[in-house]
Amino acid sequence: MPALREPGARYAPPRVSTLGLRALVLIALSVGLMVADHRQQGLAAIRSGLSAAAWPLQMLVHSPVAAWDWLSATLRTRRELLTENDALKDAARETDLKLLRLEAIEQENQRLRSLLNAAPRDAERVQAAIVMRVDLDPLRHRVLIDRGSRDGVARAQPVIDAHGVFGQTINVGPFAAEVILLSDPTHAVPVQVERNGLRTIAVGSGDTGRLTLPYLPRNADVQADDLLVTSGLGGVFPAGLPVARISEVRRDPSQPLAVVSARPTAALDRDREVLLLWTTPRVALPAAEPPPPVAAAPREARAKPKPAPP
């Protein structure tokens, strides 16, 4: 192989004397960046800028898949569309019926909570996002979605799919955000067994089909097929979203803790569309309408009720 030279230049080796110094400076710079980034201080702007710069390339990577999707959607036959339309109409009718009852129940719940002077449940808003077909680090469970701070996405925001919790946002750029999946080994979510309200924490295992529950004592009341829902304690996920179903409980008499694993209800490795969730506390509802005097009088005589937390 011929030795290559740069155009118009006589061969001059790089000056070894400054090479080590330059390397040291750059290494120190990297370490500084890492420390600053690890502590989450002040680097958000730089990260956001870099993410914006990476966006065109990421779009380029994603584009063949997007083009294929568009093509296959355009070339579908009328018959297929009609069948699908019918199925969707049926599903929508069923959902509408359920929703009607749900609305009534929600109103009732709201009224009862105000009677109890409890904090009202949080209001929710959702927005759909597309999971981009861009491979990030294969060793970490992260995906890129096509919504960013321009769409109002913030850090540590819950992401769900039609079946349950999907993950939460970790890095947010202007056009895209990175989502850490439930199954990432560094992710944990506070959960509750739906059947009996037992609270614990579900930790990712590094396998998209499995979460582990490492903090349950041997005699804890859990069984296979129990549904785990978010407990709302972490402050990220609102309470009551389905997370996983217990798949296996092993109790070793010689160990103080049970070995429990669960299967996420969300399709972590197959989803193409997810929902971003915004929760905003509904404030000032009980304060606006004073409780009916008949109900309020005896309670006030006994003790002043605690004010609802903001």
Binding site: R22, S30, L33
Partner: peptide
């Protein structure tokens, strides 16, 4: 001379931004 240390550093930083790992990891 074209691909000096600074270039390597910039390339590493680009990869960090692309992959969403700790900034400076690949750069170093």
């Amino acid at each position: 001379r074209a691909g000096g240390l600074a270039t390597a550093w910039a390339a590493g930083l680009a990869l960090d931004a692309f992959r969403g790992v700790a900034l400076g990891e690949n750069a170093l």
